[in-house]
Write a protein that binds this DNA or RNA. Structure first.
Lengths: 278, 278
DNA sequence: ACGCGCTAACTGATATATCAGAGAATGGGA
DNA sequence: TCCCATTCTCTGATATATCAGTTAGCGCGT
């Protein structure tokens, strides 16, 4: 197992292990470093895997909002080395899920009110454009499909309010919600727009919905009406409907965010609360 | 010089050079790698410097459109090691200026017609939002300042058409153009939106303007009229004016892109490259 | 007792070394 | 002459080691 070496990160045993250059180095290959990797999914580099795993942990709430992260610790947990973790954290930071200070550390981003309002405006920009294109380009079948998804989504939210607050179920509803909005961008036939919506800013809102906003008082046809407007209206009408939808969502997030305490200090963890669970 | 080892990447001379740990290594410091660096700007890590330098090379046209890049070569030219260059290239790729394939290489992105259209739609989304916020939030003094900048910009473009096609001058005009648009986002008081406009997609257009579009047949008040609409109109009017402005710019870029020959092969020297249209 | 400065440990940042795959050049065979 | 396989050298990807800075913890002086 290659991990046996990586596990020995203790400082005292800094002995320099070097192969003798004159040893039986005929045609090299004395590094049995990474033979396993039977995942065999071709687009999954180690960095990509690390990125997805860490992102899921954040979205699921396993890593709470002010949580400090360590590249080395994450590398050990994910059974990879530091560089892939570094790349993953950089990407997550560029997406706004993490924040870091040069020589201090990296932690799950604690958003300020200004952050949330700004990002909502970016989301408004991107999703109103998607709404325009959807109204303009999507064929009738896809429009009808979106309306069906909207009704299904409202049904799921209503189910959430009846009391079954299962954590896993909430996560799945949230994923369905995210899919609903991404579906609009998909049908807009603009991959760059879809990518921007998924990656840059909007992800945070669905994360905040799940993390900060607890109760939702949505009308029973909240998303169905949006879908109707997108499916039947002009591009301008779709833009307007999406704009109102997002501004309403912003108010909800801001209201839920007030409850978030000021427990956001601590870039580095105290000596005792190390090796926390995750 | 530690670079002497990096230069000798030949396979036969795989001699392992190791410092003797017991040698006169009192208090270490045998790495005279990057001592100069008199820039002294504190937020400039090596990766950031590399990012800025490479980006400028691309924007200035020093690295033409299909140009293949090598991490090691860039590291040598910039007098840094490979990891900072890697980080810089990843960021530039995420911004769309570069493209890479897993084990083949990295090169300056050659945009397809579909790419350009998609990105223009993203740009439209972000900048129309900035226009709305500008009309809504910017104080009168800033609005007047923008109108002045618009007139100045038109003057510079007119000067470009008189024949003085100095490369450096074109670059400066382009920078002024970029500043003009970023100024709108600044006055919109939304840092996230400003950041998105600067980083994600829009940069490419100003790059294409300089690289692909040679002649500009702009009316003499092209940007002045845009500034007037933003300064005096309602948010909706500002949105509309910006939308038309950007769509016109897209047509220009597409027209200029047609002249770009199929000289965009060769990751290293390859033949099967799609670039089906444009 | 309280505040200030010192020490140690942990962090990210950077450098270096090694690995594995992809492509082009080249040489041999049909 | 042309095609195919071998080889060689390039690339990015990953791993490991070392550097430099920040901060928490703690002792000492006032």
């Amino acid at each position: 197992m290659p991990k046996s070496r990586a596990a020995a990160t203790s400082r005292g045993v800094r002995k320099i292990i070097r192969r003798d250059p004159a040893a039986g180095d005929r045609n090299g290959r004395s590094h049995p470093v990474a033979p396993p990797q039977s995942t065999s999914a071709e687009p999954s580099s180690l960095a990509t895997r690390a990125y997805l795993e860490i992102r899921n942990k954040i979205l699921k709430g396993d890593l709470p909002i002010g949580m400090a992260l360590s590249r080395r610790q994450l590398a050990m947990e994910l059974s990879v080395s530091v560089p892939p973790v570094t790349e993953a954290l950089q990407q997550l930071e560029s997406e706004g899920l993490l924040e870091s200070r040069p020589r201090v550390g990296t932690r799950v981003r604690v958003p300020s009110r200004q952050d949330v309002e700004d990002r909502s405006l970016v989301r408004e920009a991107l999703e109103t454009q998607a709404a325009r294109l959807f109204a303009e380009r999507a064929p009738a079948a896809e429009k009808e499909d979106l309306r069906r998804r909207g009704r299904e989504l409202d049904r799921l939210y209503a189910q959430c309010e009846t009391g079954s607050v299962d954590r896993e179920f909430l996560f799945s509803v949230n994923s369905f919600h995210l899919d609903f909005h991404l579906r609009i961008a998909d049908c807009a036939r603009c991959p760059a727009l879809r990518h921007a919506i998924e990656k840059e800013q909007v992800l945070i809102f669905y994360w905040l919905y799940d993390t900060a906003v607890e109760r939702r008082n949505l009308s029973s046809d909240y998303h169905a009406r949006l879908a109707d407007a997108l499916a039947r209206g002009t591009p301008e009408a779709a833009d307007s409907a999406m704009r109102h939808h997002i501004r309403h969502g912003l108010q909800e997030v801001l209201a839920g965010l007030k409850h978030l305490g000021k427990s956001a200090g601590a870039w580095r963890l105290k000596k005792h609360e190390r090796t926390s669970d995750l």
